[in-house]
């Protein structure tokens, strides 16, 4: 059996409130994302969706439990090694696209290739942008692109390092309904074409409903339910 791309076991994460009170955000017994699998993770605002993505991507370290990404238990890694695993194994798509404003579309993709093991590959970057229909916009800066085009650049950037999985945080939250379907289709198609698993975090049921696997964060994150942790 092929090992999952992402596997969480007994993960806990809490923040300390300004008053010193410890506020649990994640309390997850198990979560996995298989190779090439596409999954939507639903959750209400404040349910810990973004924190979960930060823990999976190694931006945050869990207080307890293990987080395996591409076979590496990154919860044991120091920050620099987590950064390396993130660069090599994961692609991230953000709600606000988060393109670098001073860089062209091509450079935004090339930047993502600058921190991992592989060398920046201008041809692959151009090919990826071509695959999302932006061949004619390679040298345009984000401000010169439409919202839809910016999101396409963000998708191409997420796939820059041939990641094992793409994590998308509310990718449709800041775009109109007409573009939402395009973005979801684009993400699913390109990830399938690149062989990458896809985990989309969303609060929109109509988005989650399009995925073969649909989870509600509240169902497996005890901290989101506010209930006591099972022993």
């Amino acid at each position: 059996m092929t090992a999952p791309v992402i596997e969480l076991r007994n993960v806990q994460k809490a923040f300390v409130a300004p008053g010193g009170e410890r506020v649990p955000v994640l309390d997850i017994d198990a979560f996995t994302l298989g190779v090439g699998e596409q999954c939507a993770l639903e959750g209400q605002s404040g349910s810990g969706k973004s924190t979960l993505l930060h823990v999976i991507s190694g931006i945050m370290r869990p207080d307890a439990g293990s987080v395996c990404v591409g076979g590496h238990d990154i919860s044991r890694f120091d920050e620099a090694r987590r950064d390396r695993v993130r660069a090599d194994t994961l692609g991230l798509v953000f709600q606000q696209f988060n393109l670098l404003p001073g860089f062209t579309a091509l450079e935004n993709v090339l930047v993502a290739m600058s921190f991992g093991s592989a060398r920046p590959d201008r041809k692959r970057a151009a090919d990826l942008l071509g695959a999302v229909g932006l061949t004619h916009r390679l040298d345009h800066k984000p401000a010169e692109l439409s919202i839809g085009q910016q999101q396409r650049v963000a998708v191409a950037r997420a796939l820059a390092n041939q990641p094992r999985a793409v994590l998308a945080d509310e990718p449709t939250a800041s775009i109109d309904a007409a573009h939402q379907q395009q973005v979801i289709d684009l993400l699913r198609e390109t990830c399938r074409a690149e062989g990458a698993a896809l985990l989309v975090v969303t609060h929109a049921p109509e988005v989650a409903g399009q995925f073969p696997r649909r989870l509600k964060l509240e169902d497996f994150n005890r901290a989101a339910r506010g209930g006591p942790r099972a022993t």
Binding site: D83, R84, R86, G102, V111, A112, F115, G116
Partner: peptide, 16 residues
């Protein structure tokens, strides 16, 4: 700060 955060999210280390 925002640009740095984006680069970090893309895998840039603090040293980068």
């Amino acid at each position: 700060s925002r640009d740095v955060a984006i680069m970090r999210a893309l895998g840039a280390r603090r040293s980068h």
